[in-house]
Every structure is written in C-alpha cells, then in structure tokens.
Design a protein around this nucleic acid. Sequence first.
DNA 1: TCCTTCTATCTTGTATACAAAATAACGCAT
DNA 2: ATGCGTTATTTTGTATACAAGATAGAAGGA
Lengths: 218, 218
Amino acid sequence: MINKSSLCQQAVELLRKRILGQAFLPGQRLDEAALAADLGISRTPLREALKILSAEGLVHVKPRRGCFVAELALDDLDEIFPIMAMLEGRVAYEAALKVRPEDLKRLDALHEKLEKHAAARDVDRYYEVNYVFHDALQELAGNRWLQHMIGDLRKLLRLSRHRSLKLEGRQQESLAEHRALMAALHRRDAETAEEVMKNHLLAQLTALRRMAARQEAA
Amino acid sequence: MINKSSLCQQAVELLRKRILGQAFLPGQRLDEAALAADLGISRTPLREALKILSAEGLVHVKPRRGCFVAELALDDLDEIFPIMAMLEGRVAYEAALKVRPEDLKRLDALHEKLEKHAAARDVDRYYEVNYVFHDALQELAGNRWLQHMIGDLRKLLRLSRHRSLKLEGRQQESLAEHRALMAALHRRDAETAEEVMKNHLLAQLTALRRMAARQEAA
DNA sequence: TCCTTCTATCTTGTATACAAAATAACGCAT
DNA sequence: ATGCGTTATTTTGTATACAAGATAGAAGGA
C-alpha cells in the first residue's frame, strides 16, 4: 500500500473499513488521542477524518462529548431500504436503456459467478460479486449523483450487522431475482428491470425483518 | 445570534450560507489563511469545516491544491432532478398515507399563502413558503433518512444560479401542480400524490432547461 | 520573443501546545 | 454506606509553528 494521499484521507479510508468491518462496537466512543496514537498520526488530520465520517453518517459527533460510532436500528432499515429500492431501481432502469452487447457479456459473466458461489454456499464471495454486479450496473447507468447517493446509503447499510443472505432460502430467492433482472436487461426492458430491482431490495428488507424477529425469539 | 457552538460548526453554517448565497464565484478557490482571517478563526477549525462542506458536495478539495467552490453544470441538474423527483415523490406518498385532518388544515393554510403570493407576483415569498410547504410534507412523511437525502440534494441544487420559478408562466403551472397535490392529499390518494410531486419536480427541470436555452440565445 | 530551469515565495498538510469544558476522583457530611 | 460538593484529571477545541509540496517569478539559453 502506497502512502501517497494525505493522512486525513488515509485515516478516513482506514476508519471506514474498521467501522464497516465491525472492528468497533456500535455506539462506541472513539477517543481521539488513543486513535491518533493507534494510527500513528496526530489529532489534527484524525479530527478532519472524523468530520468527514460524520458527514457520511458513520459516526456521530457530540459537541464537547466526543465521537461515537453510529448504529442502525431496525427502524432505520425500514426507512432506508425503500429509498435504496427506488434509487437502485432507477439505476436498473437507466442501465437497461444504455446497455450494450459487450456490457451484457460482462454482466452475464458476473451473474455466472454469482450462481457458482451460491451453489457452493459461499456467502462471502456471493456478497462480494453481488457488490461488483451492482457497481457495474451503476457504471452503466452513468449517473454520477445517483451513484454517489447509493454509495453513501450502501455504506450506511453495512453498519447493520444483519446479513439477509444467511437466512434459509434467501440466497435462492436473491438469485432468482438476479436472473429476472438479467432477463429484463437482455430484453432492454427498463420498466421491468426497475421493478425487479425494487422488489429485490424490498425483499432483502423483508428477509432482514424475518431474521431480526427470529433473533428476538432466541 | 449566540456563539455557543464550536467555531468549526459556525464556520460550516456561515460558509454554507455564503456559498449558497452566491457570495463566491463558482469554481473559486478558497484560500485557507485568508478565509480564516476573514472569519476571525484559525485554520484548524476552518479546515474541519471545509472537509464537512466537501462531504456535502458544496466544495471540492483537491489535494495539495486547495479548496474550490463547487459548480453545477446543466448536466448535473439533469441527473439530480430525476432523483429529487423520486425522493420528493416518495415523501408525498408517505405523507398522503399519514396525513391527519389537522395536518391538512395546516397545509391548506400554507397553500393559501402560496396562492396569495403568486397573485401578488411576490417571487421571493412564494419561494420561501414553497420551501416551508415541502418541509412540512417531509415532516409528515416522518422518514428521517429521506429528509436527510432531500436536504443534501436541495442544498446542492441551490448552487445552481438558475431559479426556475422566476420564469414567467412557470409560477402558474407550479401553483396548479400544488393544487393537484393538495387534492390528492385530501383524498389520501398516495399514488396520485407521488405522481403529481414527481411531475412537479420534473416540470421544474424542463423550465430550467428552457431558461438556460433562452440565456444561451441572449 | 519564447521556452526552460532554477530559485524564492506561498499554501497546504501535520504536529504540538495550550485553554476550557467535561469527567472522574476524592473527601465530607448525613 | 450514600449523596453532595469540591478538586484533579482527562479530553475536546483551538491556535500556532513548521515541513514539504505547489506556484510564481527571474534568469538564462535557443
């Protein structure tokens, strides 16, 4: 890893990774001095990094109190997923309008991988490729602002420790939804692509709720 | 105004106001030392403020180069307005589901003002009340994340020097759209409310493009 | 005259120092 | 012991100092 960018930027990226990787407890207070010492930098760039993460919603700064890792309640998921559904739906719509044969080839290849990882029950790789797939779609759509907003929300959602795909049967459903999406893309059927993507996201929310309910019971 | 919060926070608010109030030229470089001196603070809190504004998209930080006031091209508006249309449409949808009689009374009162200011050709007041109206609707919808995202985008849009409502005739159209929205809210017709709001936003984009074309010609 | 290159100056990025607020610790009274 | 008030300590917020990169300007050559 090359140390070219500013310490602030590096700190942002590292802390983001740590926060999203659950290296901190949700709600945990981040001690500036300790963190700075840990990262081997001074408090000045660290504080700038924390302000950025705060603007991203990954931490909350309470004046004179310190910085706390954000936590997402189930209620937040209820609010965020419908928004994501709209935004990602729109991506699918725009992507379907612009998709070229070579793009379809690339997406098909990704989808292929998805099927493979699903068959192998490799949830982590599935997640990874799934991310790349959605990212490729966003690039196709070519709407920078849409991309930006979705990126922000996606980061936020990763704060939630719940992984809906771990739920029984959900991975198969997810795969089926992806297949339907691919079919719509091949037909350049933007309306259907949008609808399928929307439902894909909303189904994730439903799965998450089901999972939370089960955890509650246990 | 009381100076209770941190200098960083104050700087954020002041600079935001200045940027949105077109006190800086779009693309203008912000000299840290000069700005800090102007605000009567040191560079430390100022830099934190700039990082926050950068995360909001109001400025762009180029490493080792400085901080520049963001500028919105017409292309950006083309991308942002459809997103806003979806988000505000969703607000209208959720608001229509939750609206209570007393809320309708309040919205009616605001709409009444809107009609009055339109009749008086008072563009600034119309703008102001229009903002309050949309805000009231957001509160009704009660989706904090939706509110947050719309707030961010709305700020961004204000970077654009274009103000569509100033276009002759557009105000009448805008008013008509508002009337249709109120009617849908009274009927608690969420789908229609969403559709009307979407079209309201998209019509604004069309008006902006018309205005830009006219400016181009002049 | 124009381009290049070296130098001087300016600006950003980072560390450190210090003040004020918040937290923790202690002693005291009940 | 428990609750309260005072003091000590930690921690945030801000200013300042300094180093390294970027910019501008001058000098020299084509």
